[in-house]
């Protein structure tokens, strides 16, 4: 019994691994925010357009984590800020896993 479970488990991991390498690999880049779209104080999600420093192309990033959303809401992060971003593509969206200003003091 124990063996079957672990075999199943391995199979599951492999399957997930394959699935994720097909569409959900993390992408990392640094860029400047050109637009933040957020629907009010209670919004649970936001979309930021970030111009990739490397390629110069705009990337649409979906932000769902509370800490970053709060920074959008109270303007600790605003358009024009350079940020470091890591995202994963799921269901056609680039979902942010890390979204941080590069600057400090």
């Amino acid at each position: 019994m124990k063996k079957t479970i672990s075999t199943l488990f391995v199979a599951a991991v492999v399957a997930l691994g394959l699935a994720s390498s097909a569409c959900a690999e993390d992408v990392k880049f640094v860029g400047v925010i050109t637009k933040i779209e957020i629907a009010g104080k209670d919004a649970k999600t936001a979309t930021a357009t970030v111009k990739d420093n490397g390629s110069g192309t705009p990337v649409l990033v979906t932000v769902n984590d509370d800490l970053t959303l709060d920074k959008f809401k109270d303007h600790r992060i605003v358009e024009g800020d350079e940020i470091r971003c890591k995202y994963e593509t799921a269901a056609g969206k680039n979902v942010s896993k890390l979204f941080r200003k590069t600057a400090g003091c």
């Binding site: 709060d70 109270d74 600790r76 941080r100 200003k101 590069t102 600057a103 400090g104 003091c105």
Partner: peptide, 17 residues
């Protein structure tokens, strides 16, 4: 936490640097 981290989070030149 946020009030304190306004300064303390990015001290030294960036996030938790």
């Amino acid at each position: 936490v946020k009030n304190c981290m306004v300064c303390h989070e990015a001290a030294g030149g960036g996030y938790v640097v």
